[in-house]
Design a protein around this nucleic acid. Structure first.
Lengths: 233, 233
DNA sequence: ACCTGAACACCGTTCAAGT
DNA sequence: ACCTGAACACCGTTCAAGT
């Protein structure tokens, strides 16, 4: 009924442009996103695009916000605090894995809605866990910085930052360096090299989350209410 | 006695080029490093530079390795494991603070000597702390990813990724967004905004390190030898 | 309001030519 | 071996000109 979307003469939409930009970014990384390549893809001139989006910075930011707005799933209010945090961490990881150019953008635009949402969700989960409000900022900050940092490093290790690199090649290069250190002088990394080659990113990410949550709980251990001796009654 | 360094006709040294590159990067960020700007600074043609360093990628990597090779201080073998880890974290933070362009490079080149050294030092400290060898990889990985991630986010928050931004401006923008969320619907980030504005990066970094170390210790608590009841004697 | 495309000031990279 | 600089194929951005 409605005219087909591929009619080239239809008016240029800002959403269309952003969508095409994301496709270019996914296919060729940040270097692949140029106004001229976008114009070619959208059958128009590059000036037309720059009428809708003034800068390349604005284009990149629009692509980032659009991509991340769908990254975090709907709130599932049945889950335990720990599950909630683990789920959100995996969702960030998955988004960066699918769109590796996001990692640079995540550091660059920490005010964007998805990151505000991430802070909020982790804050609520930690509060439910019994973290006192005076320790909330530091605890959330640690988790968010770790999640973004680890996911970004995983994306880099998968070859996102080098043109033709594969995960095997990047991890292999690191592991080789580790193995080349002298084990007789007590080198420990040489013993970790094999694990680096075969580790599972998601599993390690979650293990790190658990370590941090253990640390937070250890510092603020409030006895469970039902186990709490009512000494003051 | 030796000819003064500023004699323009002296042979071009690779180290000289890298040194000048670092100065350009510090002054104007990654966009400020161009072969032509380098040539101007070194009173030569850009072709001369490209004889010593083939690519811009090679130039950037050389600048990164040179900058980081001095970032980690000499091993101080008197310190406790916890102190060692904290010291190394602060050294990474300080290096990124002084050279914000490093953060992107750190993710891109995880095989470089300084990062191998960081892994090694943290691994040794954790081993001394009693972490079993089967848990070493995950524990070190968590700490390293957190350190690099947090330091990079701090650099970004300080305005490193945006041309004229200040730390106050960036943090203010985030805090504004946090405050704009509805506190009546239970928003927690709105209560954290003020802390975001005034927090100390180094202090928060170290607090995060402590949380992670607490978590690691909680998982592998080996009773201190002198406190260990000799049940099997 | 929306689009076109020439023009400008840059890039990194290549390379024939010099010393 | 080391350096020069023209040439090439790109960029983002600006803007007068069209509809």
């Amino acid at each position: 009924m409605t005219p087909p979307k591929e009619s080239r003469s239809a008016g240029l939409d800002r959403d269309q442009i952003v969508e095409a930009a994301i496709e270019l970014l996914d296919a060729h990384g940040e270097v692949g996103l140029t106004f001229r390549a976008l114009a070619l893809r959208l059958h128009t001139g590059h000036g037309a695009i720059q009428w809708h989006l003034e800068n390349k910075a604005e284009l990149l930011m629009a692509a980032t916000v659009a991509t991340l707005s769908n990254a975090l799933s709907a709130d599932e209010s049945g889950a335990s605090p720990r599950e909630t945090i683990r789920t959100n961490a995996v969702e960030v990881f998955t988004a960066i894995e699918a769109h590796p150019w996001l990692s640079t953008q995540l550091f660059a635009t920490p005010w964007q809605p998805a990151l505000v949402q991430l802070w909020e969700r982790i804050a609520r989960a930690l509060e439910e866990l019994g973290v006192p409000s005076g320790a909330l900022f530091t605890s959330v900050s640690t988790l968010v910085n770790y999640i973004i940092g680890a996911a970004s490093q995983d994306a880099a290790n998968a070859g996102a930052l080098l043109p033709g690199a594969t995960r095997e090649a990047v991890l292999g290069t690191i592991a080789d360096r580790w193995e080349r250190t002298d084990p007789r002088r007590g080198s420990l990394v040489s013993r970790l090299a094999e694990q680096l080659r075969v580790h599972d990113d998601r599993q390690e990410l979650l293990a790190g989350i658990d370590i941090i949550l253990d640390g937070i709980e250890a510092a603020h251990r409030v006895p469970h209410p039902d186990l709490h001796p009512r000494g003051d009654l």
